[in-house]
Amino acid sequence: CHSECLGNCSQPDDPTKCVACRNFYLDGRCVETCPPPYYHFQDWRCVNFSFCQDLHHKCKNSRRQGCHQYVIHNNKCIPECPSGYTMNSSNLLCTPCLGPCPKVCHLLEGEKTIDSVTSAQELRGCTVINGSLIINIRGGNNLAAELEANLGLIEEISGYLKIRRSYALVSLSFFRKLRLIRGETLEIGNYSFYALDNQNLRQLWDWSKHNLTITQGKLFFHYNPKLCLSEIHKMEEVSGTKGRQERNDIALKTNGDQASCENELLKFSYIRTSFDKILLRWEPYWPPDFRDLLGFMLFYKEAPYQNVTEFDGQDACGSNSWTVVDIDPPLRSNDPKSQNHPGWLMRGLKPWTQYAIFVKTLVTFSDERRTYGAKSDIIYVQTDATNPSVPLDPISVSNSSSQIILKWKPPSDPNGNITHYLVFWERQAEDSELFELDYCLKGLKLPSRTWSPPFESEDSQKHNQSEYEDSAGECCSCPKTDSQILKELEESSFRKTFEDYLHNVVFVPRKT
Rank of each mutant, 00 (worst) to 15 (best):
A303F: 04
L204A: 14
K360S: 12
G373N: 03
R165A: 11
P411W: 01
L108H: 15
S192Y: 01
F290M: 14
F358V: 11
S192G: 14
G318A: 04
G373F: 15
E236T: 15
H233M: 00
D115Q: 03
A149F: 15
I357G: 02
P342C: 15
L143I: 15
R369A: 04
S402C: 04
A145M: 12
F174E: 01
M346A: 08
D289L: 06
I129N: 00
P329E: 14
Y223N: 11
E148T: 13
L212F: 11
R369N: 13
D384A: 07
P329L: 14
I154A: 03
P225W: 00
Y191D: 10
A168L: 03
N307K: 05
P330T: 08
Q306V: 12
S239N: 06
Y355A: 01
Y191A: 07
G256E: 11
V104K: 03
L345M: 08
S321F: 07
S239G: 08
L229R: 08
S132V: 02
L147P: 01
M297K: 03
E156M: 13
N224P: 00
S158G: 06
G318S: 13
T215F: 07
A303R: 08
N263T: 08
A374V: 09
S173L: 08
L161F: 04
A251N: 10
W352E: 07
L133Y: 01
G373C: 10
G343S: 03
V359L: 12
Y167C: 14
Y372V: 07
Q314V: 05
Y372R: 01
V117C: 02
S158A: 13
E246W: 02
L229I: 00
Q216G: 15
G131Q: 01
R247I: 12
K103A: 10
S401V: 05
D312L: 04
W207G: 10
L169I: 12
F268S: 01
E231V: 13
G256Y: 06
L107Y: 03
I271S: 02
D367N: 05
Y380T: 08
N340P: 06
G295L: 11
L133W: 00
C228T: 05
N141G: 14
A316V: 03
W344T: 10
D328A: 09
Q403Y: 14
L169W: 02
L147I: 14
N387I: 10
L229F: 15
P287S: 13
S208A: 13
T215R: 12
D206C: 09
C317I: 08
N340K: 11
S171F: 15
P388M: 01
Y355R: 00
D377R: 09
P391H: 02
A303Q: 12
D257R: 05
S321K: 13
R176I: 14
A316S: 04
R347M: 10
N399D: 15
W352P: 00
G256F: 08
T383Y: 00
A356I: 08
T254N: 09
L279R: 07
L229V: 15
E246V: 12
Y191C: 15
K301M: 13
Y305R: 07
F221L: 07
S274P: 00
E187H: 07
L362V: 04
N198E: 01
D315K: 03
W322D: 03
N198K: 00
T241R: 11
I278T: 03
F175L: 09
G131L: 00
I135A: 03
W352S: 08
F290W: 14
P411A: 14
S376F: 00
P304I: 11
D384G: 12
Q403I: 02
L294M: 15
N150S: 09
R176D: 10
Q306E: 04
D328H: 06
N263M: 08
E236L: 02
P388Y: 01
Y305F: 12
F268D: 00
T127S: 08
N198A: 11
S400V: 11
A144V: 10
W207F: 10
Y191T: 12
E148Q: 14
D377M: 12
V128Q: 00
S116F: 14
E283M: 08
L107C: 05
N150A: 05
S402L: 13
R138I: 12
V324S: 03
L345P: 09
S274K: 12
V363I: 05
K409E: 13
G348P: 09
A303S: 09
L298A: 05
G313F: 10
G343D: 13
L180D: 10
I378L: 14
Y305P: 12
K337F: 07
V170T: 08
T323Q: 15
I137A: 07
G183R: 01
W322F: 12
E148V: 07
S173P: 03
H222K: 01
L227V: 03
A316N: 05
A149K: 11
Q258V: 12
Q199W: 14
R247F: 11
C228F: 07
C105E: 00
L294N: 13
K267N: 12
S239D: 02
T241N: 09
Q306A: 09
C228A: 14
L186A: 05
S402I: 05
I379Q: 14
G343N: 10
V308K: 07
I250F: 14
P288Y: 02
S274A: 07
T323Y: 14
L229Y: 11
G313D: 15
D326C: 03
G131A: 07
Q306K: 11
I163C: 07
N150Y: 09
S400P: 10
S321N: 05
E156W: 11
V359Y: 03
S274E: 06
G217A: 02
L349Q: 01
